[in-house]
Nucleic acid binder design. Structure first.
Lengths: 329, 329
DNA sequence: CGAAAGGCGTGTAACGTTTCACGCCGCAGA
DNA sequence: TCTGCGGCGTGAAACGTTACACGCCTTTCG
C-alpha cells in the first residue's frame, strides 16, 4: 500500500479520476482533452493536492525553466539591482533563478559553471572575470560587460558613449583640467571603454587630460598620495574628475574633502553606474547612469530567444547623465 | 547512432570504460569500488566530459541539494546582505540557491511556495507577510522574523532586547523625552517586539514616552505633520527618537533637518538594522545592528539539520548598538 | 448506407539516475 | 580440500514524467 505521506503523482491522479496516465499529462500540458475529462482530472488533482514534479519533467524534456545568474556579489547595490530586475524578468516568463556568487574568484566562477551544467539550466547570465572560463558551447550563455568569443552575446551599457558624455559634461560645466581615474581587475572588459570614450572626446576637442589607473582594488588609497602630490597652494591641478565607478567617486570625494577642497565649487566629479542610496533614493554622486532595468531585460530576452542562430555578439545600451551633487548641475 | 551533440550519460561512460552502469554510479557516489575500476571510470568520464545530471539524480533520490530563499526584494541592502550570506552558507555545503522575490505581495508569495514545491527543493527560507501562507508541512521551512505555527522554526534578531537597548542608549545619552516611530505592514511579526522592548524599558525606568505607528509604507510623509505639530519655538517636544528601521530613520532625519533641527545636538536618533552605505561602508545612522551573518548561518544550519524532530520554534540572535552620527556617541 | 477521416483516450517506451538482489571469485578456517 | 563468507561487479527495476503509436468512436460526404 502507498505510504500516506508520499506526495501524489500523476498515476495517483489518474487513478483518482479514473482515466489513463497520458490523459492526466495532457491536461497539465494544455493539450486537447475532452472537457469532461479535463474537469475530472483537475478536480482529482485538487483533491489530492497534486503538484507537478519538475525534476521528472526536466529529465524527460531536457527543459528545466531555470536560468543561472553568476555574479561576484550582491552587496554591491548595482549588482543587487541587476539581480532584482533579472529575477523579475525571469519570473514574468515563468522561469526560476539560480543565484551563484563568486566573489570575483576565478576558481569559484569555474565551479559555478560546473554546478549549473550539472543542473541543466536552460541558460546562464554571467558577470565573470576568469580570463578563460570553460563553458560548454551548447549552453546558452549571455555575458555582462565582458566579451568572450564572438559566439556568446555580450550585453553592456554604452561605456564608450558614457565616457564621452562624462568628458562633455565636465567641459560644459566649465572644467579645464580633466583627470580620469580608474581602478579594477586586470581582466579587460567592456567597462574599459569608459576611459577610451573619455580620452577620445578630449582629444577630439583638443583638451589636455590625465589618466591614472590602478589595478588592485585595495590600492584605492594610493590615489590619495597622487592627489596630494598635485596640490599647490590649497588648489588641485585638476578641476574635473571622471571616475570609472560611483564606488571610486565616493572614495575620491572623501579624499578631496580631507584635502580641504570643496565639491563641486573647487572640483567637479562624475562617476559611473548610477547607484542610489537605499532609504532616500539619492545618488551618491553625479554620474553616468547605467540602464539597469533594460540591461536585465535584454539579457533575459536574448538568453531565452527561440532562434539562437543569429545572435548579436555585442549589445550596447544607452546611458544618461544625472547630477548627484558632485557637479555644478 | 548516438547524436554527436548529446551530452554523455553514465551509459556512455560505462561503455567507454568497459564496465557496468552500476559501477559508474558507485564511482560517482563514492561507494566501494576496486581501485583499478575507479580509475578506468574516472578517466573515461574525463575523456567524455561527463557531468552528473542532477535532474535524473533528484528524481531518483528525492534530494535536490537546493534551497529556496523567498524575500520581498533585494534592493533593500539588509535583504541583499542576508541573501549574500545565505548564498555563501549554502555554497559551503554544496547546496544551490533558488531566489524568489515577492515584493511583499501575498499572491506572489503563495505562487513562490507553489513554485518551490514543484521544484522539490530540500528546504525553504522565507521572509513573507502573507498571513496564512499555505505550505506543505512536509517541506522543511525556516521563517525569518515571523512565527507561523510552532512547528516551523523562526529565526530573528533579538528585537525585544534591541528595543530595550535603544531606549537605554538614548537615556544614557541624556535624552528625556522619548519617541518611538514605527511603520510597516499590518501583519504582526517578530519585529513588532522592537517597540515592546522599548516601551518595557521606559516603563521599567519610569520614563514617559510617546509611540506613533503608521501602517502603510507610503504614509511615511504623514510623520512630517506629526513632527511639525510638536514643534514649539523652533524646538521639538522630543529629544530622543527610536525608529523601527534605518530606512525610517533616514527619512525622519531628513524631515528634522528640514525643520531646522540639528542632529544629534537637538535630537538624537537610533534606527534598527545596521545598513551600511556601499562605497564607504558607513552607517546611515546610529542603530541597533542585526547580526546578518549569524542570522543567515543559523537559518541554513537549522534548515539542513538531519534530525528534524526537535526543532526550536524561535531563535533570537543578539543585537548590538553602533553609533552612526545621529546620536552623540 | 458505407467508407474514410479525424479527434481523442490509452498504454508503453523512454529520459538518466540509484539501488538492490544476485552471483562470481578469492580467501580463511577446520 | 571443502564449506562458508565477504567483497564487489553486474544488470534490471524503479523514480514521475512526456511523447508516440495505436485503436476506438464519431462524424461527414458521396
Amino acid at each position: 500500500m502507498k505510504q500516506k505521506g508520499n506526495t501524489p503523482t500523476m498515476k495517483d491522479v489518474a487513478q483518482e479520476a479514473g482515466v489513463a496516465l497520458g490523459t492526466v499529462s495532457k491536461v497539465f500540458n494544455n493539450l486537447p482533452v475532452g472537457e469532461s475529462y479535463r474537469r475530472r482530472v483537475e478536480e482529482a488533482a485538487r483533491r489530492l493536492g497534486y503538484q507537478v514534479n519538475s525534476y521528472a519533467r526536466g529529465l524527460k524534456t531536457n527543459k528545466t525553466c531555470s536560468v543561472a545568474l553568476i555574479l561576484p556579489d550582491i552587496a554591491n547595490p548595482f549588482f543587487a539591482s541587476l539581480a532584482q530586475h533579472i529575477c523579475q524578468a525571469l519570473a514574468a516568463r515563468d522561469y526560476k533563478l539560480i543565484l551563484a556568487l563568486t566573489a570575483s574568484d576565478p576558481g569559484a566562477e569555474q565551479r559555478c559553471i560546473q554546478m549549473v551544467q550539472q543542473n541543466k539550466v536552460d541558460g546562464v547570465i554571467g558577470l565573470t572575470y576568469h580570463p578563460e572560463l570553460e563553458v560548454d558551447p551548447r549552453l546558452p550563455y549571455v555575458s555582462i560587460d565582458r566579451k568572450f568569443n564572438p559566439g556568446t552575446p555580450c550585453v553592456s551599457s554604452d561605456n564608450f558613449g558614457g565616457g564621452q558624455l562624462a568628458a562633455q559634461k565636465l567641459l560644459e560645466l566649465g572644467c579645464e583640467h580633466l583627470l580620469f581615474l580608474r581602478i579594477g581587475s586586470p581582466v579587460p572588459g567592456e567597462s574599459d571603454k569608459r576611459g577610451d570614450g573619455f580620452e577620445s572626446y578630449c582629444r577630439q576637442k583638443n583638451v589636455p587630460y590625465t589618466v591614472v589607473r590602478k589595478y588592485d582594488r585595495e590600492g584605492i588609497e594610493s590615489f590619495r598620495s597622487f592627489l596630494e602630490a598635485h596640490m599647490e597652494n590649497g588648489r588641485l591641478d585638476f578641476d574635473g574628475i571622471f571616475c570609472a565607478t560611483d564606488f571610486l567617486t565616493c572614495h575620491i570625494a572623501e579624499m578631496l574633502a580631507d584635502l580641504g577642497l570643496r565639491i563641486p565649487e573647487d572640483v567637479q566629479l562624475i562617476g559611473f553606474d548610477g547607484i542610489r542610496a537605499f532609504a532616500t533614493g539619492q545618488l551618491y554622486c553625479s554620474t553616468i547612469v547605467q540602464p539597469v532595468g533594460r540591461l536585465a531585460e535584454t539579457c533575459v530576452e536574448i538568453l531565452l530567444q527561440e532562434d539562437r542562430s543569429n545572435l548579436p555578439s555585442l549589445i550596447c545600451l544607452p546611458v544618461s547623465y544625472a547630477c548627484g551633487g558632485t557637479t555644478k548641475e
